[in-house]
Design a protein around this nucleic acid. Sequence first.
DNA 1: CAAGTTAGTTTATGTCGTAAGGAGTTGCAA
DNA 2: TTGCAACTCCTTACGACATAAACTAACTTG
Lengths: 270, 270
Amino acid sequence: MTVFAGQGDARRSMALLWRTADPPQVRPGPRPALSVDLIVTAGISVADAEGMAALSMRAVGERLGRTAMALYTYVPSKSELVDLMYDHALAELPTDYDLAAGWRAAVTAWAEDVWEFYLRHPWMLQVSPARPVLGPNEYVMLETVLRALRGTGLPAGVLRRVVGALTHFVRGAAQTIAETRRAPAETGMSDEEWWYARSALLQEVAPDFADRFPVMTWMDGEGAYRSEDETVPYLEQEARETFAAGLAVFLDGIETAMSRNGAGRTSGRP
Amino acid sequence: MTVFAGQGDARRSMALLWRTADPPQVRPGPRPALSVDLIVTAGISVADAEGMAALSMRAVGERLGRTAMALYTYVPSKSELVDLMYDHALAELPTDYDLAAGWRAAVTAWAEDVWEFYLRHPWMLQVSPARPVLGPNEYVMLETVLRALRGTGLPAGVLRRVVGALTHFVRGAAQTIAETRRAPAETGMSDEEWWYARSALLQEVAPDFADRFPVMTWMDGEGAYRSEDETVPYLEQEARETFAAGLAVFLDGIETAMSRNGAGRTSGRP
DNA sequence: CAAGTTAGTTTATGTCGTAAGGAGTTGCAA
DNA sequence: TTGCAACTCCTTACGACATAAACTAACTTG
């Protein structure tokens, strides 16, 4: 897993991403029954439905009524396919946010949309962000937040880091919940059942828990781990609250940076 | 990849994690030449050196002069081994932070240690945080931050979410850089070379970049993407700055939450 | 129709996790 | 001392995976 972009021919890879292929001339040989787009869409369907682990060339081919090897006519390798899927999926993100209500509302809406998006496509979180794919839609997504965040008036250097940090947070938060969604189906255990069984085992295995972890025990006693809405799965509810609260904290921090910046400092810590 | 904990026998799994196995009685059969600890340590060596993708039962066995199947005497499956590796590695994190200098200094030090830790063990970031492993060292790590963050005086419910969000951020930030470290070796390309080649291709493939992404272009023009310290690899430098700045912003946000909380509100948005 | 190009299949290679069965060791009861 | 049960570790085997290589069949152009 976590494959790096551009292992093969970087030029071909970028051309595929940005769809700058030459027009479909008339060529000898059998008419192509597939296309890059068809394969990428099929790949996304497989990954959405069965998870990244189930994304195999065979599975994608099968979904299109072909063998695995048929795909290699259109796509150089599996890792390129994943890159293409990654960028293609990003296209479904909204790109316009109303800036009239202020940057904070826009950024919050953006973060929530991205979060929901990741929950719809959990496999996205398993594509390594180390060396970015550099596809068009990744840039569109970046440009979208940047437009909203420019309303903060922060200097370019600070802005760059803030965007990065915000992205990390959203990604990290989504990751915690993303696979949780599939877990109940795969393990045949609801979150509650799982948690209940686990905490029973915990007591069995660490009877001195309260002594070893006093602060955690205190938090537990304060009811910090009880959720209010019983209709939403436990772990999902918890993750949702953590996301909302964390985002608010982060945006508060941006406001602090703004006032510090407005007070004459150019950047950096106090 | 990204395997869920406790697929097999949850009780055995927890017993292995918390090392509550019965004492080594005298038993018939050949004396065991291996042990769970030996295997876990070997697994961590393999993963550290070659990455999670190269972590195979065969590879771990080989490092111990055994076959892959020999491991199954000690460890029920690969996914259990990964869980054990995960918790075992966490043991090397510091657990004591000086709280005299205030919660902020302690939390910053903690976050930096965790970040460095993840860079030392990038494979940790590929273990799904969805359904936590629930090993002893994971709890120790949590208790450690909690001890520092309790200095904020925030109520338990808020604290829980803040800790979660902070963890997400550190994880996300580490993830961006973690595999970047291996990338140059694997692709035979330094960060600069890679970036240079890529940006040339970008211009080739999207000559209208400035029109399509004006805010990004503005940021680039402001020199936001130029690093000061030339001795550190480009992408690593960038990630490091993003981490430090993002952490500061988040902690600023916590201070805001504190003052809001101290002013009489119990929780929630303004 | 012949030649050349392309789409897609079949087959094969070398990986992986792990099930099944067997070989060799050891402690203990008879 | 002998036999047996419990144990470690190995060999072999299976079905999955990505993908290389060789092939078949469809199509355009001459």
